[in-house]
């Protein structure tokens, strides 16, 4: 068994040494295909991350006609906190609302001269739990609160939420479609490059079959070689895309997503990097297997 493994490794190394240009072409193809995928993944993941960050802003504001008595407020708080979608409930009394409004007006705050705190209603700011930050959850909470006549009005950024959700949906759908398309394109290119390397070795494949090699014996080193090409291509893609990310992409994405500070735009996590290498290995193996079907005939 050990002899067999050593022999297989020797054959893989011999193949790599025997046709360095074709091997480099195969590795390069995998690297280019995966670099495009990594760039695409970086954009989608960072936009999704930003979207998740923005979704923290989703909250329901229930306006009250008057400042309620303390006991009643506590009851409401308990009731609202008991809802499955609700994370936190914060009471903003008329004083605080007026203070906030004044602060927001900044240098124009003198416009409020002559007005009292009673011009702004008190409110309950209801933050939704992660996983419930959607239009549906916000509407469910509002629906339940409407049954209470003490709440005069609700605001939960209906239009913004609608647009935000359709944007997220499009991003996910477009990401899935474009990602699969890129993956298939990569597989097609890699399979054809590997086909070229096999074409250059068709004599060897024919002679192997003629001297009694089993399909398993013939194919295994080529599949291993495909896996090695894929792994090296994946590694090159990560190194290349990390360099480009550091030099250009981070800054570009920051300005595109209106993020202040580069630290929020992140490269792939180590699990995602490992995934890229695994995708490379799978591309190499599947590409080799597809091409071998045509060339290995016993």
């Amino acid at each position: 068994m050990f002899d067999r493994i050593v022999y297989l490794c020797r054959r893989v190394l011999r193949n790599l040494k025997g046709s360095p240009i074709l091997c480099s072409a195969a590795i390069g193809t995998v690297a280019v295909a995966l670099t495009i995928l990594v760039f695409f993944a970086l954009i989608v993941l960072n936009v999704q991350k930003m979207a998740a960050h923005w979704s923290k802003e989703i909250q329901v504001v229930a306006y009250l006609d008057n400042d309620p008595p303390g006991a009643r407020l506590d009851d409401w708080r308990k009731l609202i906190k008991g809802m499955p979608e609700v994370g936190q409930v914060r009471y903003v009394d008329q004083d605080e609302a007026f203070r906030r409004f004044r602060a927001r007006l900044g240098s124009d705050s003198d416009l409020l001269e002559g007005f009292g705190v009673e011009i702004l209603p008190a409110s309950l700011e209801i933050t939704l739990k992660e996983g419930h930050r959607s239009q549906m959850a916000a509407e469910a909470v509002v629906g339940r609160l409407r049954q209470n006549p003490d709440f005069s009005e609700f605001s939960y950024g209906q239009d913004w939420l609608e647009r935000f959700e359709s944007f997220l949906g499009m991003l996910r759908f477009g990401g899935a479609i474009l990602g699969s398309f890129l993956l298939f394109a990569a597989l097609f290119i890699v399979a054809n490059t590997i086909k070229l390397t096999l074409y250059a070795r068709r004599d060897e494949l024919e002679i192997m079959a003629l001297v009694g090699a089993t399909p398993f014996y013939i194919k295994t080193p080529f599949l291993l070689e495909g896996a090695l090409h894929g792994a090296l291509g994946g590694l090159l893609a990560l190194i290349g895309s990390f360099a480009v990310f550091q030099l250009f992409l981070q800054r570009g994405l920051s300005s595109l997503l209106l993020v202040s500070g580069n630290e929020q735009i992140a490269f792939l996590s180590w699990q995602q990097q490992l995934f890229v290498i695994v995708v490379g290995i799978l591309l190499g193996i599947i590409g080799s297997a597809l091409s071998l079907r045509k060339f290995v005939r016993i």
């Binding site: 025997g18 004599d203 060897e204 024919e206 002679i207 079959a209 003629l210 001297v211 009694g212 090699a213 089993t214 399909p215 014996y217 016993i298």
Partner: peptide, 23 residues
């Protein structure tokens, strides 16, 4: 087809164009 390799292991074949591996 899985038995063919075993038959070929007991059969020597020589061709006009030698079919040697140049590398």
């Amino acid at each position: 087809s899985s038995h063919i390799p075993h038959l070929r292991r007991r059969t020597g074949i020589v061709f006009q164009d030698f079919k040697l591996l140049e590398s």
